[in-house]
């Protein structure tokens, strides 16, 4: 784990929801062009940790964060770091597919419009490329101007991925991206993730341990707001160092 390859470095991160201490001194590296998975029982803070990485927790009132999150060595919680800029570099796919109630095309180019682009031809090119990147182009190329809400759930989720690819983020955060999908759709998203990691750094939260084992390179196991163990995925699942991790992996807990 050499430092220069770390896309993101979390160190001594504490987060409070009011008085509730939700993350307790969490430290973790995220390496470039690899998939890092966060696992743990419900309420352990894995989604909260993920949402610290693009500062989505800012939206919740009463949240206080201390500690450091470095993105390419610069602290995203420093007052000079522009949060809209951060979110363009660190994109997010949510638990439930959340395409906007706009056309498929308008969904894909949304981030571009937000960033101030108005070159129609360029936007069309990027839209096509992004939809291809999310393996959705063949499904939607004839109905780009239909409402995105007409698509089946798994295609909606891939549209949300395409929407991200359009603005070419450096990191993609995925918050249980398959929990609303059936096994076949889940498999497709997992394959897509493996393809995407060639160009992107991915952090995924999942409560599906098989999923973490299948797709991730590194895994962090969290419990009650603490990072219990962080290691190469294979080691976490075959020879965990911590007893707590072993109990969870073997199904004795949660």
């Amino acid at each position: 784990m050499t430092t220069e390859k770390n896309k993101i470095e979390i160190s001594g991160l504490d987060l409070y929801y009011g008085k509730f201490h939700a993350l307790q001194s969490v430290s973790m590296p995220v390496q470039k062009n690899l998939i890092t998975a966060l696992i743990g029982p419900s309420g352990c803070g894995k989604s909260t940790l993920l949402r610290c990485l693009n500062r989505m927790n800012d939206l919740i009132s009463g949240v206080k964060v201390t500690g450091k999150v470095l993105l390419d060595q610069s602290d995203i919680y420093s007052p000079t770091f522009e949060v809209t800029e951060l979110r363009k570099r660190v994109g997010m796919v949510f638990q439930r597919p959340n395409p906007f109630p706009l056309s498929i095309y308008d969904n894909v180019v949304y981030g571009l419009k937000v960033a101030g682009m108005n070159n129609r031809k360029k936007m069309e090119e990027i839209a096509e490329k992004s939809l291809m990147g999310a393996w959705l182009w063949d499904n939607v190329k004839d109905k780009l101007h239909h409402s995105a809400l007409e698509l089946p759930l798994d295609q909606q989720q891939r549209l949300c991925v395409a929407r991200l690819l359009a603005i070419e983020p450096e990191v993609i955060l995925m918050d249980e991206p398959c929990s609303a999908l059936d096994p076949i759709a889940t498999m497709k998203i997992e394959e897509l993730m493996l393809e995407l990691k060639k160009n992107y750094t991915i952090v995924i939260v999942t409560h599906n341990m098989q999923q973490a084992a299948r797709v991730s390179d590194f895994t962090g196991y969290m419990l009650l707001g603490k990072m219990i163990e962080f290691n190469v995925t294979k080691d976490i699942f075959t020879r965990p160092k911590e007893k707590l991790t072993e109990e969870y992996i073997s199904g004795k807990y949660g």
């Binding site: 809209t84 994109g91 949510f94 439930r96 959340n98 906007f100 949304y110 960033a115």
Partner: peptide, 15 residues
């Protein structure tokens, strides 16, 4: 309007 629309938009860097 579902909160998820707002989150989706903000997460794409919108103000």
């Amino acid at each position: 309007v579902p909160q998820s629309y707002r989150e989706g938009s903000l997460a794409l860097g919108a103000t």
